[in-house]
Design a protein around this nucleic acid. Sequence first.
RNA 1: CGGGAAAUAGCACAACUUGGUAGUGCACUUGGUUUGGGACCAAGGGGUUGCAGGUUCAAAUCCUGUUUUCCCGACCA
Length: 563
Amino acid sequence: MRLSNQFFYTLREDAKDEETRSGNYFVRSGMIKKVGTGIYLFMPLGLRVLKKIENIVREEMNKAGAQELLMPSLIPEDYYVQSGRKDVFGHDMFSLKDRYNRGYVLGPTHEELFVYAAKEMIHSYKDMPFNIYQIANKYRDEPRPRFGLIRTREFMMKDAYSFDVDDEACDKSYQKMFHAYQNIMDRVGLNYKIVKAGTGAMGGNLSEEFQAVVDIGEDTLVLCSNCDYASNLEVSTCIVDETESYEEEKELELVHTPNAGTIAEIASFLQEDKSRFVKTLIYKIDGKFYACLIPGDRDLNEEKLKKLLNAKEAVLALPEEVERVTKASVGFAGPISLSIPIIMDRHVQMMKNFIVGANQTDYHYKNVNLKDFKVKKIGDIIHVKEGDLCPNCGAKLTFKKGIECGNTFKLGTKYSESLGLNYLDHENKLKPVVMGCYGIGLARIMTSVAEQRADDMGIAWPVQIAPFEIALVVINPKDDVQKTIADKLYQSIESMGFEVIYDDRNERPGVKFKDMELIGIPVQITVGKKASEGTIEIKHRGGEKEEITIDLLNEKVIEYLNQ
RNA sequence: CGGGAAAUAGCACAACUUGGUAGUGCACUUGGUUUGGGACCAAGGGGUUGCAGGUUCAAAUCCUGUUUUCCCGACCA
């Protein structure tokens, strides 16, 4: 592409509203522009990157035997009412009425319609397996979109669904997709980790996430320093250090702790470390109150709590409710002589002489031990911390931040049962189809790769997804010799099948260099003063320039692009 | 949905406290000088100050409402 007379602009100043480095560079390099909260338009340059990612995804999906189709975004709401997900999504789904007051939604994810499509195909076990997918926009009314393209309300997603006769067959389909995902993430040049994740409201049995390792990520990845354990914080576990404490059990003691309602306050008041405390959190779980005991320096994991109790909903009790249940102000709840059932984290089992609230405003108990109260259930209900011990090998766990770029789910029969997707097996018996679903966020890949490769000049795109492979800069387009040579080179490189952005604008050299580095073209060729002597320059973005003779250009270009 | 901040030229901001011709930088146009890392000089163009009301002789400025955006939190298949 010749830059003169093309739609191309860059901004010299940082974007006001972009919190991420990549987001700022996307805006400054004219790739995207914010239209509203969580809504962006893609300018030609940005679209090229997105399309390249899309094509890699499409190629790998097709290679894995999946077939592409296209679902509508505007969907009669009945499909989501039937599946029960109108309620599950609630306000997260955009819904609207047409002129006849009929209800529609903008599709937040498409299990329902894929099942609808699959029903046309599936009658018998002979009709499976197959995998169908689309690359299309999804709509979610996020409470708080942020981080550039990472959390937007409209976003391009590849979603695929596999259909199989049983779990064993589904495993095979799942593995195919899993490998396709590895190929995709490798090809786009992403530094990523595959972690185990929660199945959440999607339901199903197994979920793995392809997480880009990026500091601005919203997810926390728990990785083992020794083995290959990798898991999303949501579902991470650890083994409990069972080193026996030989501490003597001391006499229970009631202490006056005026106005010290939080762990931090009471810890500083009593001059004790937070780990000497046991927090008592009052939860309302499926309508009933429970007290949850966890170490004072830990956070409760509501997902784990729900799972332990096989519950649908777990919410922290309101202050009034806490006061009613504990007969004390918030902050003084404790397990001793409490009337509601007590759920205790495993770690508390190993503690001795700890401190808890006394269920009396302004009082705590010191030297509390397990014999002092009754527990209904013991389990793992806390988030792991850095330094906890790996559940596989016992080595220390470390944390990294991640952006979820892709995920793979084994859905089981959840949707096929609720939506009546069945087939006849060998024995003429009706059985539910076993499904898998597989998603990839295209703009999240774009952001993650950019974030991982940004420097203080701009984005250093990998060749595979760069908007152009080669930048050709002519230093002085008013110099006839330079211009003629550059024009020729442009045609010749383009005819070799490479994507070239040819900067023939009448700008000063510095402007062109800065722009090419900002938008991140991997290889740059410069035609300058020495062109008249048959010498030009080639370099990697941000690298050292090499002077070469013009006749060597073709082979050098290939060499540089492959490096 | 709670708490905070903001809305002025394409972009980033000033003027608001104390009401009186809306200004600066970048970008843009014209002319000239420049041409190997975001040039310089000169002359220009571009604004119903988010929207709607109110106070006033007079509102970007004060008041009320409204919409939108950003930040923190809650939330997040």
